[in-house]
Amino acid sequence: MEILDLIQSNLLTPIVLFFLFGIVAARVKSDLRIPDAISEFLPIYLLAAIGLHGGIEMRNTGLGQIAAPMAVAVALSLLFTLNHYWILRRLGRFNMYDSYALASTYGAVGAVTFSVGLSFLAGQGLESEGYLAAVLAVLEPAAFILAIFMANMAAARQARKRGPAGGPAGGPAGGPAGAPRPRMASVLRQSVTGKAIAVLLGSIVIGYIIGKEGFEPISVVFDEMFVGAIVIFMIEMGVIAGRRLGDIREVGVFLTSFAVAVPTLNGLVGVLAATALGLSTGGAVMFGLLLASASFIAAPAVLRHAIPEARPGLYITSALGITFPYNIIVLLPVMLAASVWAHGLVGGTP
């Protein structure tokens, strides 16, 4: 019953309530919106706050601890991305482009989900390892790079099969419409220099340099306002998710189940792996959340450019409309219970 209690108390946090309120507002066709500039600013703010905290803590704990969790997280994320592709292509019968796009959306991480996870833990009086911010920065592009690389290879293979008319030799050949595939290097540059990764890496470095004393004067903005800022952003997320509720029908039963089952599996594997690696109870939850979350802000920007054939309606609606609410409302408490249980098994401190 402990899990149900956790879910129930999580439902009554301001973050979840404002998210649900946003959905209701959209459903009754209220014109409630957070102004564009603010809803574009808030993810940058959240990432800056996460990065600063991460950097400060990495200075305290040293950089040595990061290597093993980082390597395991990247390996799991890539493995999961391949597994998603297999499930979607073979079992779900999605076309190749949709499969790659969805596989990487679910292999990548959601920065907003990560922020909600941090405040969920804070509400439970738990902390997590600060270096997970660095893992967030590395995982974000990893799944995209793998999926885009494989989509390009597959498209080139198809073009070769069709014969030399498919496209110029050397470069990756075109799709059915004859559009040239974007080069890997430009996709790589775009995902690594994109604003999300840029602000996250920048703030980690700055946090590492300034340390605890340097953070003191800006902590009002980057610490005390953090949860409040998420709450404001949740109104917008709720409104957008609410407007997309009707699209869920188009997503279909298979993808809807995928959007719930896959994060659950990935998240629980993540919690167990992190516990085995010696992360704290809260750290294991965040590690699981990194692997469970799907990207819905960064993904469209990268994927529309890299795999334009894939239907954005599918990957945005499933990631934002289904997986995000499921993760913050149900999966977070479930992973916390799993983490407490796993730490009990290995005899670690809860």
């Binding site: 564009d36 809803s39 957008i240 407007r243 819905f296 802000i297 469209p300 920007a301 954005p312 945005i316």
Partner: peptide
């Protein structure tokens, strides 16, 4: 508004 529904409200990329 067009073929692909109402556009311009929602996420940045939309």
């Amino acid at each position: 508004k067009g073929d692909r529904g109402v556009r311009g409200s929602g996420l940045e990329g939309e």
